[in-house]
């Protein structure tokens, strides 16, 4: 479930990055790298788990499914927080700098 949620997040971010110039300006590419990197690594984890437990991998217990779903959402949220911090620091549209300048005035 975590893998699935991360892959969907990666696909959505990649589509946004490809289709929208303003998304590229807002550094959505960072999210693409984050989510694709994690998706590839969890894919390997999933393959190893499938090798060890077989078809049972596709029928997890409801409690495990819920925990993985919650983890997946938390991972997406963490990725968004990392992206937001980077955007605020790099300030591609100059909004933070403008706000600070106004305050000083």
């Amino acid at each position: 479930m975590t893998l699935l949620i991360t892959i969907f997040a990666a696909i959505i971010c990649t589509i946004l990055w490809y289709c929208s110039a303003s998304c590229r300006e807002m550094k959505v590419g960072i999210l693409c790298w984050l989510y694709w990197g994690a998706s590839l690594m969890w894919l390997v984890d999933a393959v190893f788990e499938y090798i060890s437990i077989g078809a049972a991998y596709f029928t997890p217990a409801p409690a495990d499914l819920l925990n993985d779903f919650y983890l997946g959402l938390s991972v997406v949220a963490l990725g968004l927080v990392i992206w937001q911090v980077i955007v605020l620091i790099k300030d591609p549209k100059g909004v933070v700098r403008e706000a600070l300048f106004r305050k000083k005035k």
């Binding site: 991360t6 984050l34 989510y35 694709w36 990197g37 994690a38 998706s39 690594m41 938390s74 991972v75």
Partner: peptide, 17 residues
């Protein structure tokens, strides 16, 4: 670098979880 750091960061969070 971005793929490796991004993936490692999110996996670190999973391990903390």
């Amino acid at each position: 670098n971005r793929l490796l750091w991004g993936g490692s960061a999110l996996l670190l969070f999973e391990h903390v979880w």
